[in-house]
Design a protein around this nucleic acid. Structure first.
Lengths: 234, 234
DNA sequence: GCCTCCGATATGTCTAGACATATTAATCAT
DNA sequence: ATGATTAATATGTCTAGACATATCGGAGGC
């Protein structure tokens, strides 16, 4: 999981501040001493206290404003972090053998809902790929992928027979911006067949839209059997 | 959403490095120049470059190791961040009116599965609460909550008739550690009835376990109708 | 060849000091 | 009172320099 962080001055300060918040020495809404005061108390430089408090603000524990000072957060929004792995790596990490199967590959004019989602002209060409990812031979994820050929023309050259579109896109356009939406749905006939489920079985669904410099690159609808679990720690 | 960050030297450096990574000046796996070299190139202090690179490493773009230097990340794990709001705030943000309804409240000996999950003795006392959260009168979330009375004895005094257990716990024990698991399931009869669904309808499920200094505080199973969507940007 | 030791090196952290900037609180003019 | 101006202040950022530490590569010994 997460390796233990090395000991350091600012981490000690951070831990002590968090301890006092949890112990209610400083209750939600309370004003904390200024950085200079805490630096004097802890016997370290202001920059060290600054880093500790900045990271606690990142974690949602503190609220900081110039001149107004630092308060214990009252807003009950806690940012959670979790890793979005590539499907292959995710499967292999469970110890299972990964396999990939292409089910469909076509180039079409963007359907209405996609053209609307991306604000594209009527005649925009897109690649549409349907594929199945398997763990030890059992269906793991059904991938329904749409690629904007205006932005990624190279996708026309790729047949996606051995490498999945997700993997290919990450290699072609790394570190683009993305938005993900998670939800639950029930399997229609086609999806149930592909995933080896019964019709109506629950599906864990992830939808991912990706942009490169403001331009829509790809939209993917990833469907998992309900045995799939996504975990995070905060 | 996210307010625009103020311009600053380290953000400009960060943006320029990210630009070069995206432009493949530095491809995945490539070694970047050392901090001192980049500091010389950008005409700023090493600490400024350090902050830029550190934040890019946090975002999963770079891999850094002492002595070995900094490389563009090849590991395709991108950390995503999203906010876990309190249910009340989440509902009210949609513009809807929030309502809360207590369905059950009891104190019992921890059932087997919970005692095992928490590694508790056989006779541990827990509070069990079932409640419904509504948006504009329509079921939004069903909350199935278990509280470890050994750690939070004050929960015995609370009847949870007007304030939900989640809200109460956050006020009582802010900033504790938590783990969340998201999955899909189908509604059993009781859940379907509570949420106003048909049996077998898909459910978006979040399970949350919370600790305070290593001790289990509470376990909650939150069930949403499949219209619920959880969104993140990375 | 193989192993151990050791020095070089890039990042990790820290300090003291400086200036920038948002925002509050006080002051002053109307 | 009310509104505009101004000073004070806490955080935000930056610099130059220092020492710590993990680790890579080579030198030397077997």
């Amino acid at each position: 999981m997460s390796r233990p962080e090395p000991p350091s001055r600012f981490r000690a300060v951070k831990a002590e501040i968090l301890r006092r918040v949890r112990a209610r020495d400083w209750a939600p809404g309370d004003l904390l001493p200024a950085e200079t005061e805490l630096a004097a108390e802890f016997g370290c430089a202001r920059a060290t206290v600054n880093r500790a408090m900045r990271e606690l603000a990142e974690a949602g524990v503190l609220d900081r404003k110039r001149r107004a000072g630092t308060r214990v957060s009252t807003a009950p929004v806690r940012p959670a972090r979790f890793d979005i792995p590539q499907t292959r790596a995710e499967v292999e990490q469970t110890g299972a053998t990964y396999a990939y199967r292409l089910l469909r590959r076509e180039e079409v004019v963007a359907p209405d809902w996609l053209a609307r989602l991306w604000a594209l002209p009527e005649t925009a060409a897109v690649a549409h790929v349907e594929a199945l990812h398997l763990a030890d031979g059992r269906p793991w994820q059904f991938e329904d992928r749409w690629i904007n050929l205006a932005v990624v023309p190279a996708a026309s050259e790729e047949d996606f027979k051995t490498v999945g579109p997700n993997e290919w896109l990450i290699a072609a356009l790394p570190f683009s911006e993305a938005e993900m939406v998670f939800s639950a749905a029930s399997a229609d006939a086609a999806l149930a067949h592909a995933l080896g489920l019964a019709g109506g079985d629950p599906i864990f669904r992830a939808e991912r839209t990706t942009w490169l410099e403001g331009q829509p690159v790809t939209y993917a609808r990833l469907s998992y059997p309900s045995t799939y679990r996504m975990t995070t720690r905060l």
